[in-house]
Design a protein around this nucleic acid. Structure first.
Lengths: 334, 334
DNA sequence: CCGGTTTCTGTAACCGGTTACATCACTCGG
DNA sequence: CCGAGTGATGTAACCGGTTACAGAAACCGG
């Protein structure tokens, strides 16, 4: 690999001049520029990013930490983030914490490799976040409530949950069971809050019940359905914390011959692709936009050295499908 | 940010000793080690990754280039890749080329930031790949046929397509229409080849037809269905190059009241989550394993300086569902 | 042709680590 | 008590760029 000194020798100039030419800075005579460019081309010289970064004391790279990429949710957020980061000419480092025991060490290591990072959801502890913040790491939290004066980007949960619940009440639902773990995720907690608030507001129906699950996946959803069927204890509606849960639950109910939405209604959250095919009512989140917004906030922190924190709240959209609506035909014709 | 020199001063030793302690190398007296560690802790010193990387002349990072993360396919591959990379203690840089005009420049820039990279699919031109290879960039291609002596990892396509087609023939299919663009993607080309081979081998039925589409998405699939319905020109089976196409096509057919699989059968490729809910027959690819294998090959190239190229071919699995099978009930009970 | 600008180029210090080699202290057998 | 051998530590040269500052060259009006 040729270095800047090789090019300088070849072109008969100093390394400073080569640097100026490569960086396209002002104040180099055309004749000199041409000589340097010719030498660089002849040697197939590419400036070392490492040398540059060290001298400029910046990485021109951002990190993003997420639990997993298997569901569509985080993949979309990462994608939205990457698109904006690329536009801002920054590389993107990724780190998945799923099932990794040394997650916090990995995050610290990553913090040393970039100018700032975005943390999605509950991937690292509050203590770790505060520790990073104390060390002046530029941080943006996504899908996680603000901690200290760290920037955050979230999708609206409470009002969306209220709207969803009002829709169910208007469809005649009187008993509702919420599926998810409000303790494990702040997003889920807000959704559960919203459901309860809608019931209080309507002053009608029994109070909603809560079923906690360990994982927000299809298997857990199916297990909830099986348990309810075994004790013949079905509510009018299951409101699930995400689509995977809802899809698992829905599949199990249909397999048991339960009429959805006739006997029971089911709703999810996120609007994943499969939700459309399953006719699942859900709340659509602006996933890409979450990532894009995070990227812009982070860039502000790095470039403009903004100090007062910002907190963005993005709006969601209720998507009503056959799993919760008697007016829609419960099933498309074959 | 404290540097190694600050720590050295604080501990009353030279920077070489601090470096030795931080790198946990041999030959430092216990008493000295303790003094240095105390100083490092007091100053909250973290070695700069940049300085380290420059001195060691390695990045300890790998890149991965993909077209998009929106479908489940690439997201899963990236995830499998990241998991293994983390295990090998390497950071992961990502680059999405989707709709980016300066993709090749971005890839070159990324090559300068890591020790090697993985390229998924048709994201950059053959010329660009060869150019990188000529510059000794460590490369692994995924979902793309080998170029020169560059490593590659692919899922089996030809035999899987033959098996799928044989299944359809055994279900009584005589006219088959393949949907996809064999020119745009080598994977698709191999699948189309396999379909034709199965027909030749069976010596039965009419030769399969080909419908090319621009994008492998739901919209294109729906358009193919609409066109076929308009001219009342339905084959016995549509074999689609991926699940998105098949889902779009299937949705349109069902909306028009066509009996699937009674009148027409439909198959996809990839086994995305929605395929299960749509009852779509498909070919499951070991997506995570593709990424994981690529990560290991790349590590070999970097660490062991292997020179003879390796080409891995991973097996797939035919998943038969109601969209192609009269023996399975075409629709679960409501 | 000269002095004062202006424009270009070179020197050298720096960014923050690693490591070959020199040096020094200490141990130990003869 | 000395010299060899061993182990711990320091010195200084790197890795490959950027950039402040100094100095040289070109330009320009008088």
């Amino acid at each position: 690999m040729p270095t800047i000194r090789d090019v300088a020798r070849q072109a008969g100039v100093s390394i400073a001049t080569v640097s100026r030419v490569m960086r396209e800075s002002e104040g180099v005579r055309d004749a000199t520029r041409v000589r340097v460019l010719a030498a660089a081309a002849a040697l197939e010289y590419t400036p070392s990013q490492l040398g540059r970064q060290l001298a400029e004391r910046r990485h021109a790279a951002n990190g993003i930490v997420f639990p997993d990429l298997s569901g569509p949710y985080y993949a979309e957020v990462v994608l939205g983030y990457e698109a904006v980061a690329a536009e801002l000419r920054r590389s993107v480092l990724i780190l998945s914490t799923h099932g990794r025991s040394d997650a916090e060490a990995a995050v610290r290591e990553m913090a040393g490799r970039c100018d700032g990072l975005v943390i999605l959801g509950r991937t690292v502890s509050d203590a770790a976040v505060l520790h990073l913040a104390a060390r002046r790491t530029k941080l943006v939290l996504v899908a996680r409530p603000p901690i200290g004066s760290v920037d955050s980007v979230n999708a609206e949960n409470h009002a969306s949950a209220r709207t969803l619940t009002q829709h169910l009440l208007s469809e005649g639902v009187r008993t509702l069971r919420f599926v998810g773990d409000p303790v494990a995720s702040p997003d889920v907690a807000e959704r559960w809050e919203g459901v309860q608030a809608a019931f209080r507001q309507a002053g009608a129906g029994r109070i909603p019940e809560l079923v906690t699950v360990d994982e927000l996946d299809e298997e857990s959803g199916a297990a909830v359905a099986t348990a309810a069927l075994a004790t013949d204890d079905l509510p009018d509606a299951f409101v699930c914390a995400n689509d995977e849960l809802a899809l698992g639950l829905l599949g199990q109910l249909k397999a048991a011959g339960v009429d959805v939405p006739g006997t029971v209604m089911v709703t999810g959250w996120d609007d994943v692709m499969a939700a459309r095919y399953a006719g699942l009512t859900t709340v659509r989140q602006p996933m890409r936009q979450l990532g894009a917004t995070a990227a812009r906030l982070l860039d502000e922190l790095i470039v403009e050295e903004r100090t007062e924190p910002r907190h963005e709240l993005l709006q969601t959209e209720l998507v009503i499908r056959s799993s919760s609506s008697r007016s829609t035909s419960p099933k498309e014709p074959t």
